[in-house]
Design a protein around this nucleic acid. Structure first.
Length: 507
RNA sequence: GAAUCCUUAGCUCAGUUGGCUAGAGCACAACACUUUUAAUGUUGGGGUCCUGGGUUCGAGCCCCAGAGGAUUCACCA
C-alpha cells in the first residue's frame, strides 16, 4: 500500500502506533466523540466576563502544532479550517503519581496531524489568545504520515508553503489541510451552486437529470469519450452536452428545466479546460435570448451578492463588476469597435485576406463562420474584462439556434465573456423541425469534409421537435469558469477538487 | 500534439568549472524548560539527487531516451 520504503518519520509513527496499543489505547477508537462546540464557535462567542459559562467544552480536530515547555505545553488544534490554541498542564492531565498520559502519550506518542478530542475550559492567556485549557484528551485517529509544515508569522507571512502544484493536486486532502484559503475556494464553489439553485427554484423552474451515457453525442461540437455497454453490446458516449435531452423535456411540457452536472470532452487540457467539467443548462419556454440576457444579469448579480456579499470581485488587480446591466454588443460590432474594420459584409475570400493583413493564422478548410470566430478570438476576446454579452453569431457556427429575426445569415445567440473568457452561451432555441433537420444536414456535410467536431444527427430529437417544442430560450454556464471569476483564480485546477492528471508511477 | 523550463530529505529550497563523507530551514529523535505562539537552547538521525542508458579516472551537475509537472502555442467550451 504505502510503498516499500518508509521514511524515518513514518517508521517512528508506526512505532508510536504500536506503543499506544501496548498502553491499551486504541488509535482508531470506534466510539463517537461528542462535540459541544467548534473552534470557530468558541473563538467568535467567548467573552472574558462570561468565562464561567465556558468551563466544560468538548472539541475535536487535528493537532497542527505543539510547543512543549516541560510540564506544560501549548498546541494548536484545527477543525474545519479554524485553529484554536490548547493548553496542556502535566499535573492536571495526570493528577496522580502516574504521569504517563502526559509524559509519554501526549509528548512522545502523539504527532502533528493526529486527530484528537479534548475536554476543558476556555480562558484567555496573558498574551490575549483564547485558549482551551485541556483537562482530558482522547486520540481519535492516528496519522502515519508527516504533514508538510506551513508556518505563518504574526504579520501573516507564510513560510514553506506546500506549493508544488503536482503534489497539491494529487494530494488535495493535504493541500486543503495545510494551505489556508484552499478550502475556502471550494466552500465558495458550493455556495455559488446552491445560490444558483435557489434562484432557479424560486422562479419555479425544475431541476432535472438527463442521461450521461448517450448513444448519440449531440448538442455540442467536441470529441467524446467512448465506452461500451456489455449486455447491449454497443458503444456509448459520455455526454458532451445535455441540450437535446433538456429540449425533449420542453416538448414534454416542462416549461422551465435546468440541470447542473458533469460534461465530458475528449480535448486538450489547459488552464481553462478539464476533460470533465460542470455545466448548468437551463431552458425556459416562451422566452427569447433578450430575456435570457436580463435573467443572466440578475442571476450573476444575485449570486455575487449572496455568496460574496458584494457585486465586485478583485481579479488580478482588476475589479470585475457583476452588477447588471452588462454591455451588449453584436459580434460584428465588437470587431468593428476593436479594429475599426467592419467585416460583416465580407465573404470568405475577403475575410481570408483580412486575416492575412492582421497576421492571423488560418487554414484552408476554415469556412466563413470559423474565420469570423478566429478574428473575434484574436482581436476582441481578451479585451472583454467586464461581463459583456456578445450577440448575433453566424448561422453556420450554431446549428441549434433560431435564425435572427431581422439579421440575415445570423442566429439569435449570445455568449457572456468575463475577464476575457467565455462563461455562458445562450440561444433563442431553434424549434422549427424542418429547419433543424436542414441544419443537421449542413453539419453532416462539414463532417464529410473532415470536421471531426461536426454535430451528429439525432432522429429522435427531430421527432420530438416535430411534435412541437414551445419557443424557448436556453442558457449554458460553465460553472468551473464562473467559480474562477468569482473566486479570483486563473486556473481551473484551483476550483476542481481533483483535476485530471496522468497517473503517478507508484502511489 | 509542439516548444521551453522544472524534478535534490516528510515540506520549502541551496548545491561553484564535473572532484573527496550532498547542505540549510521547518519537521523528526534525545535532553532541558509551567503562559508559549514562525516558542527557545544543546545534541543527533534522516537521501533511489525522478527513471534507464552514455561520456569520464570521477556525474546531483555534461549527453541521449523515458516518466511526471508547469508555462506558452495548437486543438477545444
Amino acid at each position: 500500500m504505502s510503498g516499500p520504503h518508509l521514511s524515518e518519520q513514518e517508521v517512528i509513527r508506526r512505532e508510536a502506533l504500536a506503543e499506544l496499543r501496548n498502553l491499551g489505547i486504541d488509535p482508531y477508537p470506534p466510539e463517537a466523540f461528542p462535540i459541544s462546540h467548534t473552534p470557530k464557535e468558541i473563538l467568535s462567542q467567548f467573552k472574558d466576563e462570561e468565562a464561567e459559562h465556558w468551563t466544560e467544552v468538548s472539541i475535536a480536530g487535528r493537532l497542527m502544532s505543539r510547543r512543549i515547555q516541560g510540564k506544560a505545553s501549548f498546541a494548536v488544534l484545527m477543525d474545519s479550517g479554524t485553529r484554536i490554541q490548547l493548553y496542556f498542564n502535566r499535573d492536571e492531565i495526570c493528577p496522580g503519581e502516574d504521569k504517563t498520559l502526559y509524559n509519554t502519550v501526549f509528548k512522545k506518542l502523539l504527532d502533528l496531524g493526529d486527530i484528537i478530542g479534548v475536554k476543558g475550559f476556555v480562558f484567555r492567556t496573558r498574551v490575549g489568545e483564547i485558549t482551551v485549557h485541556v483537562t482530558s484528551f482522547t486520540l481519535l485517529a492516528k496519522s502515519l504520515r508527516p504533514l508538510p509544515m506551513v508556518k505563518t508569522d504574526a504579520e501573516g507571512n507564510t513560510y514553506d508553503a506546500f506549493s508544488d502544484p503536482e503534489l497539491r493536486h494529487r494530494m488535495r486532502y493535504v493541500d486543503m489541510l495545510v494551505n489556508d484559503g484552499v478550502k475556502d475556494t471550494f466552500i465558495l464553489r458550493s455556495r455559488i451552486i446552491s445560490s444558483m439553485r435557489r434562484f432557479f427554484d424560486s422562479k419555479g423552474w425544475l431541476e432535472v437529470e438527463t442521461p450521461v451515457l448517450q448513444a448519440i453525442h449531440g448538442g455540442a461540437a467536441a470529441r467524446p469519450f467512448t465506452t461500451h455497454h456489455n449486455s447491449l453490446d454497443m458503444p456509448l458516449y459520455l455526454r458532451i452536452a445535455n441540450e437535446l435531452y433538456l429540449k425533449r423535456l420542453l416538448v414534454g411540457g416542462l416549461n422551465g428545466v435546468y440541470e447542473i452536472g458533469k460534461m465530458f470532452r475528449n480535448e486538450g487540457m489547459d488552464r481553462t479546460h478539464n476533460p470533465e467539467f460542470t455545466s448548468m443548462e437551463i431552458y425556459v419556454a416562451y422566452q427569447d435570448y433578450h430575456w435570457m440576457m436580463t435573467m443572466t444579469e440578475q442571476l450573476l448579480e444575485n449570486i455575487a451578492k449572496e455568496v460574496l456579499g458584494s457585486t465586485q470581485v478583485e481579479f488580478d488587480g482588476k475589479t470585475l463588476e457583476f452588477k447588471g446591466p452588462y454591455k451588449r454588443i453584436s459580434l460584428f460590432d465588437s470587431i468593428l469597435e476593436a479594429t475599426g474594420v467592419d467585416i460583416s459584409q465580407m465573404d470568405e475570400q475577403a475575410l481570408r485576406e483580412q486575416c492575412k493583413a492582421w497576421h492571423i493564422e488560418v487554414s484552408p478548410e476554415m469556412g466563413r463562420g470559423k474565420l469570423i470566430d478566429e478574428i473575434f478570438g484574436e482581436k476582441v476576446e481578451a479585451s472583454l474584462i467586464q461581463p459583456t454579452f456578445i450577440t448575433d453569431y453566424p448561422l453556420i457556427m450554431t446549428p441549434l439556434a433560431k435564425k435572427h429575426r431581422n439579421k440575415e445569415g445570423l442566429v439569435e445567440r449570445f455568449e457572456l465573456f468575463i475577464n476575457g473568457k467565455e462563461v455562458a452561451n445562450a440561444y433563442s432555441e431553434l424549434n422549427d423541425p424542418i429547419d433543424q433537420r436542414q441544419r443537421f444536414q449542413d453539419q453532416l456535410e462539414l463532417a464529410n469534409r473532415g470536421d471531426e467536431d461536426a454535430m451528429a444527427l439525432d432522429e429522435d430529437f427531430l421527432r420530438a421537435l416535430e411534435y412541437g417544442m414551445p419557443p424557448a430560450s436556453g442558457l449554458g454556464i460553465g460553472i468551473d469558469r464562473l467559480v474562477m471569476m468569482l473566486t479570483g483564480h486563473r486556473s481551473i485546477q484551483e476550483v476542481l477538487f481533483f483535476p485530471q492528471m496522468r497517473p503517478q508511477k507508484d502511489a
